[in-house]
Structures are given as C-alpha cells and as structure tokens.
Simulated scan of single mutants.
Amino acid sequence: MKKVLIFLAIFYSFFISNGYAAFKTGNEIYPGLEDWKRTPSINQTTAAVAFGYVVGVSDALDQAIFCLPPSVTAGQITDIVYAYMRDNPQIRQKDASYLVATALKPYFQCRK
C-alpha cells in the first residue's frame, strides 16, 4: 500500500507542477518538505509531492549512487534530505535530484 501511495504522489506531481518532476529544483521541493515536517501539515498535497519526489528519486538512484539498507524508512530518507536542504540554502537552486543524491550519499555508501 505504501508503494502505491508513493507512486501516486510522484505521478500526481507531473500534473500539478509547471514542468516535469525531473526538472524540479531544491527551491521547488523545499517548501513541501518543510510542510511535511510540520504537524499538522498546512498543505498536504505539497507535502505529499515533495515526500514522493524524494522517495522516488532515492529509489531510482539506489544501488547506482548510494546503497540504501533494507531497514531504512522513507521517513528517514526524507529527514536527511530535508536537513541537508535546510542547512545548505545556498545550493537549493540546483536540481532536486542532485540534492537528494548529495544528501544521501555520505550516509549510505556502497560497499566494494
């Protein structure tokens, strides 16, 4: 069920954005991540899209850029990416998928 919800969030993001999800910047998804961290969320759609984007990109890059252990949760992944973007506002204009990879790589390096 969780995978279906994540898929729907990513799929939905194609229709509510001004471009394709692959061309989102950190500036575009950061407000949604902030909202995702807020309880209760002010805009659940924006929060779900940002959460789905981060989880989708991390799933796509898993085993290529970094290696996620089976025990890591989507919440942990999103927490790491949110903290990285919060602590590095000077680079939020970069491609969001690059920022996701850059945030996760130090924590989930692949073993040789």
Rank of each mutant, 00 (worst) to 15 (best):
67 C>P: 15
70 P>Y: 03
49 V>M: 07
101 A>M: 07
106 P>F: 00
55 V>A: 10
95 D>S: 12
91 I>R: 01
53 Y>A: 10
74 A>R: 11
85 M>G: 01
82 Y>V: 04
97 S>M: 10
42 I>E: 08
107 Y>A: 07
96 A>R: 11
96 A>S: 09
85 M>H: 01
107 Y>C: 07
44 Q>L: 09
95 D>W: 01
46 T>I: 13
45 T>R: 10
66 F>K: 07
104 L>P: 15
78 T>F: 00
65 I>R: 11
67 C>F: 07
92 R>T: 00
60 A>I: 12
48 A>R: 10
105 K>W: 11
59 D>A: 12
93 Q>G: 12
55 V>M: 04
54 V>S: 05
56 G>R: 04
105 K>E: 14
68 L>Y: 02
76 Q>F: 10
62 D>E: 04
47 A>S: 15
108 F>R: 13
105 K>S: 15
60 A>M: 10
44 Q>D: 04
97 S>Y: 03
49 V>E: 07
70 P>Q: 11
69 P>W: 02
87 D>Q: 06
109 Q>N: 13
95 D>N: 12
53 Y>P: 12
40 P>F: 02
58 S>H: 05
74 A>K: 14
84 Y>K: 06
103 A>M: 10
72 V>F: 04
40 P>Y: 00
49 V>R: 11
93 Q>N: 12
43 N>L: 11
106 P>Q: 06
60 A>Y: 06
54 V>L: 03
82 Y>W: 12
72 V>K: 06
51 F>V: 10
61 L>I: 07
57 V>E: 01
92 R>A: 02
101 A>H: 08
97 S>I: 09
48 A>D: 10
95 D>M: 03
56 G>Y: 01
97 S>E: 07
64 A>E: 11
